[in-house]
């Protein structure tokens, strides 16, 4: 019976198991909600006909969408001490997933991400240990870098690279393939302020849904 359930769980959206493991990540999740999910049958949860199921699925999508957007739009810097740092915008508790994503890419770096919503710095060291600090990013990066030696490898690839990306980005546009509809869907309002997105981007096309991931003022 269990085997059958597992096979068939991915037919429509999230399985109950996935719901129970990922729902606690949501900022509006509470123990009562989890209990309710636990006591509701999987078929009801999967069927978007009920209001409760719609709510649960919406919450799960919000978590994963936010995570994906942060993977896409987080612009990181690497200093010559091997510290990779950047600003993120996570309202739900999926920092560990984002840190894992960067750790997978840069396993020999110390990763610091400043969450502009929660005003806290989350870190992951080379051994994949996660820590949280209530310090601003610049201070934290300075403190961490002091204890780490300068590595020639990182010195070689670390610099202010915004200009390079700006040049690369503007060279890739093909005028004959302009797709305004798609562009409107994908380009956020603050794209103009992003490194590499200045110029060539028409200001009138905006996507307000993406704004909060891009506008990292703090």
């Amino acid at each position: 019976m269990i085997k059958n359930q597992k096979n068939y769980s991915r037919l429509f959206g999230f399985s109950k198991e996935e719901m129970l493991t990922n729902l606690p990540r949501h900022s509006q999740c509470n123990p009562n909600l989890l209990l309710k999910v636990q006591n509701t049958s999987e078929s009801i949860l999967k069927n978007n006909g009920s209001q409760f199921a719609r709510k649960i699925n919406r919450m799960l999508h919000e978590i994963f969408r936010e995570l994906e957007r942060n993977r896409q739009f987080t612009r990181t810097n690497l200093n010559n001490h091997g510290v990779l740092y950047g600003k993120i915008t996570l309202s739900h508790q999926s920092e560990d997933q984002l840190l894992k994503y960067f750790h997978n890419r840069f396993p020999n770096c110390f990763i610091c991400l400043f969450n502009t919503i929660k005003n806290e710095t989350i870190t992951m060291n080379e051994k994949a240990k996660i820590q949280k600090f209530q310090v601003s990013l610049n201070k934290f990066v300075q403190n961490i870098s002091r204890n780490r030696p300068i590595t020639p490898y990182f010195e070689d690839i670390s610099m202010n690279n915004e200009e390079i990306f700006q040049e690369f980005y503007s060279s890739q546009f093909i005028a004959s393939r302009e797709n305004r509809k798609y562009f409107k869907k994908m380009i956020p309002k603050y794209a103009m302020e992003m490194p590499g997105m200045k110029g060539g981007v028409e200001y009138k096309f905006r996507n307000n849904q993406l704004d909060k991931y891009i506008n990292k003022k703090n």
């Binding site: 994906e68 896409q72 994503y101 997978n104 396993p107 546009f173 093909i174 994908m186 997105m197 981007v201």
Partner: peptide, 23 residues
Amino acid sequence: VNWIGSTISAGVCHSYAPDGRCI
């Protein structure tokens, strides 16, 4: 640990050109 980069998590488009194509 010395290796940098990953080929596993694909499907991330880091930016979009004005023609709508992802870069």
